[in-house]
């Protein structure tokens, strides 16, 4: 066990955790967040995505010690109904998702993508999304939402 300092959604935490414990379980079990979500534990699906210093990362394979003192943003910290992030607003307007279990990956990857490429090309979108799975198949609405979010930010 070690004491590890984390900055999550703008708040500082000190948690007792095994240094090799994936960030996912620290965020869920030590800090009590519901997002990120467990999907595969193998970095293959993206349900556990969080932003680490602005990059979309898989928290299920990221040891917590490697996230220490970095800025972590989870879906809870992205925006609120009163002040939605443009990506959240766009996903809501497009009524994207069926069950929504996968949406951490899509929303946070889209937010990171648009931060880097405000007008992403199809190739850039493909690169951002190729590691994600939506088992329900909501890709058509997700695609529309990303385009809408890019327009909103413009």
């Amino acid at each position: 066990m070690a004491q590890i300092s984390l900055n999550v959604n703008g708040k500082n935490y000190r948690v007792d955790a095994e240094p090799d414990c994936p960030l996912l379980y620290v965020l869920r079990d030590n800090i009590g967040l519901n997002n990120p979500r467990f999907g595969c534990g193998l970095g293959q699906c993206g349900a556990c995505t969080v932003l680490v210093n602005g990059s979309a990362m898989r928290s299920c394979t990221l040891p917590v010690e490697r996230a220490a003192s970095k800025k972590i943003v989870t879906l809870e910290g992205l925006g609120t109904p009163e002040h939605p992030h443009p990506v959240q607003a766009a996903f809501l307007e497009e009524q994207a998702f069926q069950c929504g279990y996968c949406l951490n990956g899509w929303i946070l990857s889209a937010a990171a993508l648009l931060e880097r490429h405000p007008h992403p090309s199809e190739q850039q979108i493909q690169a951002a999304f190729e590691g994600l799975i939506c088992r329900c198949g909501s890709h058509a609405q997700i695609s529309a939402a990303v385009k809408r979010a890019a327009e909103r930010r413009a």
């Binding site: 519901n34 979500r37 467990f38 809870e76 996903f91 809501l92 009524q95 994207a96 949406l103």
Partner: peptide, 19 residues
């Protein structure tokens, strides 16, 4: 009518059986 479940999901406030 917009789906009543989506805002909670998109803003990370929905609860699944995992939670």
């Amino acid at each position: 009518v917009p789906r009543v479940d989506l805002p909670g999901k998109i803003f990370g406030r929905a609860m699944y059986s995992t939670d």
